[in-house]
Nucleic acid binder design. Structure first.
Lengths: 185, 185
DNA sequence: TAGAAAATGGGACGAGTGTCCCATTTTTCC
DNA sequence: GGAAAAATGGGACACTCGTCCCATTTTCTA
């Protein structure tokens, strides 16, 4: 198998632009709205650019999923640096919920991973990141799993409600399952 | 506006068959796999049958969503009759998680409601049903909301994992957020 | 600077799409 | 039994789709 990654730096820029255009299209019209034409038009590039940088639509969607999951995981991981992490998480979640379009796009990609197991590598990173956060508050794996499930379910439900939650409200929810930080870490 | 519901009973049967066929198609190929032709072929009916019984694809998907949400809500409501409801819910959720296809279909329709506010009437019924269950265990609205979020998030995550949870594992999760029933109801 | 590799832009193909339309058959009601 | 309404089955339309293809231009390397 030949190396296909020996593209020039400028090409990599276009690749990124296509991924970001893909996310915008998903925000607007959903995963089913993603086509070579809609994405390349959104990016202001010719139709064939998507086929050049990606082997197919599936590859493009996979790249978009990997991109957002890595971003989210990184944001989550940066939380664990210090201070009142629970409060910081509440603020982060409130901020995320305030952008329903982007959040909806991520959930659609999330569900895509349910149909294509090879995409779970990306979603797993997100789940691991949230789980790692929970481990700062509890050693109980069951409780940690509750936290992960609660956060994902909460964000999902904000998509079905008009009034977006404040950081205080989110913190109240977190307090129920994350009473206090572990003393020795 | 003329009454369109004056169809004969036999026609209503076909309508139901189309809705069920739609759900099977979503299980197999996702919401994006739903077309007049795929659905009618799945139901063994001519192409135009979907346009006759539904004004468009959106109408068909809305009917499918309403159908599954009502089923789920009803199952949830039947739980509140008596006995160890928490255990019963755990068994129900384990049973639901054992059918990933159907569950995935429901989540895809769930996300569809995020884009079409008029569909939230159906999803709200589900959220209310779960919330009503939680109220049997707590008067705290915050805790009730945690329960609802946790259940939805948990089911979502089972779609991204190969090993399906047992009723005992689900019960352990529920125990974290639903310690014990309220004494006087 | 010359040649090779990468990138670009546009078109063409068959297949599948939603919707509308209409002739025919079946069912229901008076 | 006969007329109106409902249901049925199939085709036609313009459109979008993914993918492949190729001539051209740009970029890097030797």
């Amino acid at each position: 198998m030949k190396r296909l990654d020996r593209r020039y730096p400028k090409g990599e820029l276009r690749r990124r632009a296509l991924i970001e255009a893909t996310l915008r299209v998903i925000e607007r019209d959903g995963v089913s709205g993603v086509s070579h034409r809609t994405v390349s038009q959104e990016a202001g590039l010719p139709t064939s650019s998507t086929t050049y940088y990606f082997t197919g639509l599936g590859d493009l969607l996979a790249a978009a999923l990997t991109c957002v999951m890595d971003e989210d995981s990184e944001r989550m991981r940066r939380l664990s640096s210090g201070g009142d992490r629970r409060r910081e998480l509440a603020e982060l979640l409130a901020r995320v919920a305030a952008e329903p379009g982007r959040l909806l796009a991520e959930y659609e990609l999330f569900l895509l991973a349910a149909r294509r197991p090879h995409l779970r590598e990306a979603t797993d990173r997100w789940l691991v990141a949230v789980s790692a956060f929970a481990r700062c508050y509890t050693d109980d794996p069951v409780r940690a799993r509750v936290v992960v499930a609660m956060i994902d379910g909460f964000l999902l439900q904000t998509l079905l409600s008009e009034n977006k939650p404040t950081a205080d409200e989110v913190e109240a929810l977190l307090s129920v399952v994350l009473p206090g930080p572990l003393p020795d870490r």
